[in-house]
């Protein structure tokens, strides 16, 4: 499973540490040795062509995908494994589920629960996973809905909302657990062009308030405006990373230049 030579002691100020992560699906190497650190309060935007492994990388951070080699830690805690001596033991599902309550995840297709109302969607995890009293969870849900501009939609069902509204509910749902880290997997890719702005505005607002976020997206303008770090991935590797001004305007690698020339 894991190489024993790699150090599993996280750096002090890193919220997310990814070390030498490998992942393969059958004969396909999706991640071929990823190293990445994300400092608390920073926004990291991951760019790359489809099939470059960026979504898979995001999904390994909350253990929706297991890694084949390497390790990931969030806020100083190993994700999905427990270290004992030079071995990593896979955690039980219940322990993994508890770890996930500290990491919010927003999906490309929203994945709201269609049979529950908006407010039921939001209080489900705080009540069921953290054991919060329902009254307290409802108050938090109300506050979060106001924050994403949907205070009047609490009793609506997801199908009664536009795509942009659904994604904003999904963000409120992720925030309800008060996570240390928010992961966004192409949050605007399933939206009509005119609805992209309202979702990006909510994410920008979160960035301004110092939420640690990793965002996989194709929105170059958003990356330029909000990111502290831009990471460019191709074929399972990080090709280059740095400040948005450097990576987007003065890319050092030919592959990055080729990609940017197509999407800009």
């Amino acid at each position: 499973m894991s190489s024993t030579t790699e150090d599993t002691t996280p750096t002090p100020d890193a919220m997310v540490e990814i070390r030498s992560v490998h992942k393969r699906f059958g004969s396909l190497d999706v991640l071929r040795g990823i190293d990445l650190s994300v400092r608390a309060g920073e926004v990291t935007v991951v760019l790359g062509p489809s099939g470059s492994g960026k979504s898979t990388l995001l999904r390994t951070i909350n253990h929706l995908e297991k890694v084949d080699r390497g390790w990931i830690s969030v806020d100083g805690t190993l994700i999905g494994y427990r270290r004992d001596g030079d071995k990593l033991y896979e955690l039980r599902e219940r322990e993994v589920l508890r770890q996930r309550t500290r990491i919010g995840f927003v999906f490309q297709n929203f994945n709201l629960f269609p049979h529950l109302t908006v407010v039921e969607n939001i209080i489900e995890a705080p009540v069921a996973a953290l054991g919060r009293p329902k009254k307290e969870a409802l108050a938090t849900a109300e506050r979060l809905l106001a924050r994403v501009g949907l205070a009047d939609k609490a009793e609506a069902y997801p199908k009664q909302l536009s795509g942009g509204q659904q994604q904003r509910v999904a963000i409120a749902r992720a925030l309800a657990l008060e996570p240390k880290l928010l992961l966004f997997d192409e949050p605007t890719s399933a939206l009509d062009p005119e609805l992209v702005g309202e979702v990006l505005d909510v994410i920008k607002d979160l960035a301004l308030q110092g939420t640690t976020m990793i965002v996989v997206t194709h929105e170059i303008g958003f990356a330029r405006e909000v990111a502290d770090t831009v990471v460019f991935m191709d074929e399972g590797r990080i090709v280059e990373q740095g400040a948005p001004g450097d990576v987007l305007d003065r890319p050092r690698h030919e592959r990055t230049r080729a990609f940017l020339s197509k999407v800009l």
């Binding site: 599902e93 589920l97 770890q99 999906f107 489900e124 069921a128 996973a129 953290l130 992720a174």
Partner: peptide, 27 residues
């Protein structure tokens, strides 16, 4: 039931039996 449903429930840390009873089975 769409895979995304249990995946979203798992990402939210909802316990396994509750994922089934509250999210998957009603759908």
């Amino acid at each position: 039931v769409d895979d995304g449903q249990s995946e979203a429930a798992a990402a939210l840390g909802i316990p396994r039996h509750r994922q089934l009873r509250r999210i998957v089975l009603p759908q």
